[in-house]
Simulated assay, not measured.
Amino acid sequence: MSERGRLRTDEVAAVLDVSASTVIAHTKGGLLRTTRTPGGHRRYDAGSVRELARVLEMPEGPERDAEMEALRLRNQARHDADGQAWDALARYCEARGVTMASVVTPLVEAEVQRLREAGELP
């Protein structure tokens, strides 16, 4: 696994026994949750991969189709909630006349330090 519960595209392809292009198609179709590294590479949430693997193991048919749609809807709701959180942070910063970076940077630095102390980052 690449980093703390995040998988690379090739790792997801191996888990799901599909090609990397199929993984990306599943992502674009809303079936997998992903983030991007600072370099622009996709990293997949391990829980999201497990959810999709469970659905893909089901026999084809209406029940599987319903599970696929439910998975898409759950992922969309999570995506929307993330966007709402960022919007709320932007409103908070604007109301106080501060930048988002001035609020987020200390939090990120503290998390990086914690991960280094835990040996999870170099």
Rank of each mutant, 00 (worst) to 15 (best):
R78Q: 14
A90M: 13
S19W: 06
V103I: 11
G83I: 06
L89F: 07
G29K: 08
M100I: 11
E3H: 11
T35L: 02
R64I: 04
R54S: 15
L16Y: 09
L115N: 05
R50K: 10
Y92W: 12
Q84W: 14
A70E: 13
E11S: 03
T35F: 01
V18K: 05
R4I: 02
D10I: 14
T22I: 03
V112C: 05
A53H: 08
R72A: 07
S102C: 06
R54F: 13
E3I: 08
Q76M: 08
R4C: 05
G47P: 07
S48F: 02
S19C: 04
R36G: 11
L7P: 08
E3T: 00
L71F: 09
M68R: 14
A101I: 10
R72H: 00
A77C: 07
G47T: 01
A81I: 00
A101Q: 13
L52N: 04
G119M: 00
L31G: 01
Q84M: 13
E94F: 01
E63S: 07
A66N: 12
E120G: 04
R64K: 15
D10R: 15
E117M: 05
V12M: 06
M68H: 05
L73G: 04
L115R: 10
R74H: 05
D82R: 15
L107T: 06
T99H: 05
G30A: 02
D80M: 08
W86G: 06
H79L: 14
H41F: 10
R4F: 05
R91D: 15
V18Y: 01
G40N: 13
V108R: 13
V55W: 04
H26M: 02
R78A: 14
L115F: 05
R8D: 04
C93L: 08
T9W: 03
P122W: 01
T9Y: 02
D87H: 10
C93R: 03
V103Y: 00
T34Q: 12
T99E: 11
R36N: 12
E67Q: 15
A77P: 00
Q113T: 15
S48C: 08
E51T: 00
V108Q: 11
T34P: 08
E94L: 10
E51N: 11
R50V: 02
V55T: 02
L73Y: 10
I24H: 14
L16C: 06
V12C: 03
A85P: 04
W86H: 11
A53S: 15
M68A: 04
R96T: 03
S19M: 00
L115G: 06
Y92Q: 08
D65M: 07
L31E: 14
D65G: 05
A13N: 09
A90G: 09
D80Q: 10
G40T: 07
L115C: 01
E60P: 12
R50G: 00
A13T: 06
G5S: 00
E69S: 01
M100V: 00
P59H: 06
A110M: 12
D17S: 15
G39D: 06
L56E: 04
K28N: 11
R114C: 03
D82M: 12
H26W: 13
R8F: 10
G97L: 02
R74D: 09
M68T: 07
A81P: 03
L121Y: 02
V104F: 12
E94H: 02
E69W: 14
E117R: 05
D80A: 11
R42A: 07
Q113G: 10
V103K: 07
T34N: 13
R78S: 14
R8T: 10
V108W: 05
G47Y: 00
